[in-house]
């Protein structure tokens, strides 16, 4: 059995860093726990669900996807874009965030394959951390996950001996490469967090497929103020915008995160907007996660991490919406 003392967890990060990996981990950043690049001496915060997820390391907020050298009088020359895909270990990824990778892999690889995403995905080893605790917003169990789920992970760390140790278990070849950095030991794994199933996603999907025009949407979306907090925090949401930015010498074509909650997301240049109000946008969000995505990719676009609800200033909670939808379908 491979075990790590919780108090010496940073040693593993250090060992990985020394071995040439970029290390990503939950770090306390002035009171807010973020999933970010770990640097020597930083404390790793394993206790809280970070505001960001491992998604940021595979599909960054902003990325150059094309580059042009600008010349005289509107002339330009394309400049090759170097792929940024350093060898990375993502440490302490929540099982819900690791599970989200299946949904991201699907969209970035159906038909057209996204090379830059795939390069980073291939270069990343995901070491997840089973949850011994859950809060009121967690609902992984309702969407096919589990607090100790292994989907998407190359290795998993399970809390043991009352939280004083972690048991390391490799789940893939990439995960086994790290085994040597963890010492042998003995520990008794703790019970994973207890969660109640709140709704049945299949029932929700059935109601959604038949109720696009329901008056439910108008009422359900009243509180939504149309920001992107939920989408940006979501480990699955992957909508983006392409924007050119240039100075005198160079143009960078950037892929930036975007959100279906924004009013301008679908606005045509003509002024027509297929989704003219927040109820149409909230419907799109729920439909995409529980109806469109599962129909297209055979996987839900929600892993129950609860971030959207935890962060929403207006208390929009997708699990609660699903509970209400399931009740409507009965």
């Amino acid at each position: 059995m491979k075990t790590i003392e919780i108090g010496r967890f940073s040693d593993l990060a250090q060992a990985l860093s020394t071995a040439g990996y970029r290390v990503a981990a939950p770090v306390d950043d002035g009171g807010v726990v973020r999933f970010k690049e770990w640097t020597k001496g930083r404390e790793i915060a394993l206790g809280a669900v970070p505001v960001d997820s491992v998604k940021d390391f595979l599909f960054p907020r902003s990325e150059v996807v094309a580059r042009f050298a600008l010349e005289e009088a509107g002339a330009f020359t394309p400049v090759p874009v170097e792929r940024f895909a350093p060898k990375t270990v993502a440490l302490g990824v929540r099982p819900c965030d690791a599970a989200a990778l299946a949904a991201l892999d699907a969209v970035f690889n159906w038909d057209y394959r996204d090379g830059s995403y795939n390069a980073r995905r291939a270069a990343t080893t995901v070491v997840s951390l089973a949850c011994a605790k859950a809060d009121a917003h967690c609902f992984c169990i309702s969407v096919g996950g589990a607090p100790d789920g292994t989907a998407g992970a190359d290795a998993i760390l399970r809390p043991a001996d009352g939280g004083s140790k972690l048991v390391f278990e490799a789940l893939s070849d990439k995960g086994r490469l790290l085994e040597a950095m963890v010492s042998d030991g003995q520990a008794v794994p703790d019970a994973p967090a207890a969660l109640k199933k709140r709704f049945d996603p299949a029932a929700v999907g059935r109601w959604l497929a038949a109720n696009f025009e329901s008056p439910f949407w108008k009422e359900a979306a009243l509180a939504c103020l149309g920001c992107g907090a939920c989408a940006y925090a979501c480990p699955v949401c992957h909508c983006f915008d392409l924007q050119d930015e240039s100075d005198r010498k160079e143009c960078r074509r950037l892929r930036n995160w975007d959100s279906c909650g924004f009013g301008l997301f679908t606005l045509h240049a003509s002024g027509h907007n297929p989704r003219p109000d927040q109820s149409a946008r909230w419907r799109q969000r729920v439909m995409h996660k529980f109806s469109i995505y599962p129909q297209k990719f055979k996987t839900l676009a929600c892993t129950g991490c609860g971030r959207c609800a935890r962060l929403c200033q207006a208390g929009m909670a997708i699990a609660e919406t699903c509970e209400r939808i399931e009740a409507l379908g009965r």
């Binding site: 970035f108 057209y112 992957h238 909508c239 983006f240 679908t266 606005l267």
Partner: peptide, 13 residues
């Protein structure tokens, strides 16, 4: 016609 960014089924709009 609809607003598009990627053209290849990824950008979601």
């Amino acid at each position: 016609e609809n607003r598009m960014k990627c053209g290849v089924g990824k950008c979601g709009r």
